[in-house]
């Protein structure tokens, strides 16, 4: 998919370059942008490395477990089809906690494990179950407590108060998570998404 988008971006710029008589500028942009891209990474690396180092300390402190404790009762209500003591429940709780802290590297393996555990409850192999869809909807709406990389980008770009986006990110991602839960629960009842069973 990204394949097509990338190709589209490049082709569109040539087309618009011709229309707007800016073709020379388009060609010049290739060299300039490639150079800028690498320079940006150099400026970014220091602060990024610092934040991720700090987050590793937080991870070692058991911050993920702390959040998991708070999430568990909520998740039990969101997944009525999954028994509270099923391994899938614990793995989903840990995956979401790691996601909330922006620990993508820790979150993905846990999430994949959770999917495998959810599959053991699936009576129709090959067809997504309601808990799977709910889990993925919450996952793709991502509540973020600390948007580590976005903060690092702002700081590297000369931002004076990069932590300001913690509040805005939390509010916006809470909205998207609530919307995801409502959407996934409502869509699950639509007949067009249940046709595959018949």
């Amino acid at each position: 998919m990204l394949n097509i988008i990338w190709l589209l971006l490049i082709c569109t710029s040539v087309v618009f370059g011709v229309i707007n008589h800016q073709l020379d500028a388009v060609v010049a942009a290739v060299t300039i942008s490639a150079k800028v891209a690498f320079e940006l990474v150099l400026g970014l690396t220091g602060i990024m490395v610092f934040w991720l180092g700090l987050m590793r300390i937080a991870e070692a402190c058991g911050l993920v477990q702390l959040i998991a404790k708070g999430l568990r009762p909520i998740l039990i209500r969101l997944f009525p089809e999954v028994p509270a003591e099923h391994p899938a429940m614990g793995e989903m709780v840990m995956n979401m906690s790691a996601n909330m802290l922006g620990l993508v590297n820790a979150a993905t393996p846990l999430g994949l494990k959770a999917m495998k555990s959810l599959e053991t409850l699936n009576t129709y192999p090959g067809i997504a179950t309601n808990p799977m869809c709910t889990f993925l909807a919450i996952n793709t709406s991502s509540i973020q407590l600390i948007p580590v990389s976005a903060m690092a980008y702002l700081a590297a770009g000369g931002g004076m108060h990069p932590t300001d986006i913690i509040g805005s990110g939390l509010l916006a991602s809470t909205c998207s998570t609530v919307a995801a839960i409502i959407a996934v629960k409502l869509l699950a009842r639509l007949s067009c998404f249940n046709k595959v069973y018949s």
Partner: peptide
């Protein structure tokens, strides 16, 4: 990736729900 590991071919309402979440996320932002 997530459906890939468990060989799910019919994703049902997962994609529409995810896209609604993204859209609301952008509007809320």
């Amino acid at each position: 990736v997530y459906f890939g590991v468990v060989n799910i071919r019919f994703t049902r309402h997962a994609i529409p729900a995810g896209l609604i979440a993204d859209f609301i996320g952008i509007v809320a932002s």
